[in-house]
Design a binder for these strands. Sequence first.
DNA 1: TATAATGGTAACCATATGGTTACCAATACA
DNA 2: TGTATTGGTAACCATATGGTTACCATTATA
Lengths: 125, 125
Amino acid sequence: MVTNTHTTIHRNAHNLDQTFGALADSTRRAILVRLASGEATVGELAWPFEISRPAISKHLRVLENAGLVRRTVDGRISRCELDAAPMRDASEWVEFYRKYWEGQLDLLASYFNEKKKTTNEEKEK
Amino acid sequence: MVTNTHTTIHRNAHNLDQTFGALADSTRRAILVRLASGEATVGELAWPFEISRPAISKHLRVLENAGLVRRTVDGRISRCELDAAPMRDASEWVEFYRKYWEGQLDLLASYFNEKKKTTNEEKEK
DNA sequence: TATAATGGTAACCATATGGTTACCAATACA
DNA sequence: TGTATTGGTAACCATATGGTTACCATTATA
C-alpha cells in the first residue's frame, strides 16, 4: 500500500502528466462534470459548447488517453462514461502540499492580525 | 465561503488551466517537491536535471505564471520559493471525484470477489 | 580592472493542443 | 433503397510546451 505520496512520483510520472494535462482545459473539465452525473453520448457532451464536433472528439481523445473517460460504441452512437480512478493519484499528489497552503493561509492571517495590531497602536498615538 | 467545488469552476477556470498545466510535467513537479523542503536558487533547482538552464528557466516561468513559485532576485542569484496556494483549488476540484473513484474501487473489489467465487465453483467441478 | 559565475534572452526546432472546414463511414429509418 | 443522423478522420492553421545552442547582462571576486 502506498503511504507516501512521493513514492508514486516516478512510477506514475507518465500517468500524472496525462491526468494533469487532461484537467488543464475548462472544456474537458466541463465534460468531466457532465459525466459525473451519468454516461452521455458524444452529441450530448458537445451541445453545451460552441465548438465543432471534431474539437469535442479531440478533447475526448485526450480524456481517453488519460484514462478518465471510457468510450463504448453502441451502433451508430458512442457512449462515454467517467473513470475517476486516475484522479486518485493526482489528488494524492496535490494533497501533499496541503500543509503548505494551509501554512501560508496561517501566515496571511497572522499578517493581517499584525497589521490590525499596528493600526490599533497607531490609533493610540 | 465556497462550499461547493463547482461554484469555483468558472471563477477560477483560467487559474485551474494554468495550475493543472503547470503540474502536467515531471520536471516541474520535481521542482515543486524540491521547493517543498525550502527555497532554492535556480542553479540548485537545475543541477539534478540533465537539461539546460534555459529549459529550467522556461519551467520556472510556467510555474511562476501559475502562481506556484515566487522568484526574488538577490544580487546575482535568483531565489525561488513555493507558493502552494493555487493547489488548494486544484485539490478541491479533484477531490469532488473521490466518491467516483472510491465507488469504482468498490466495483473492482466486488469483481474480484465474484471472480474468486467463480474460480472456487470451478474447482468444485 | 579583468574574469569567472549566475541566470536570462534570442532564435530555432519538434511536438502536442485547440480550433477550423471538408469529407467519409456506419447506421437507423422513411 | 435512398437519406438523414451520428460521429470520426484528414488537412490545415495558430499557439504553447519542451528542448537545444549561442549570446548577453549583471555581479562577485582574484
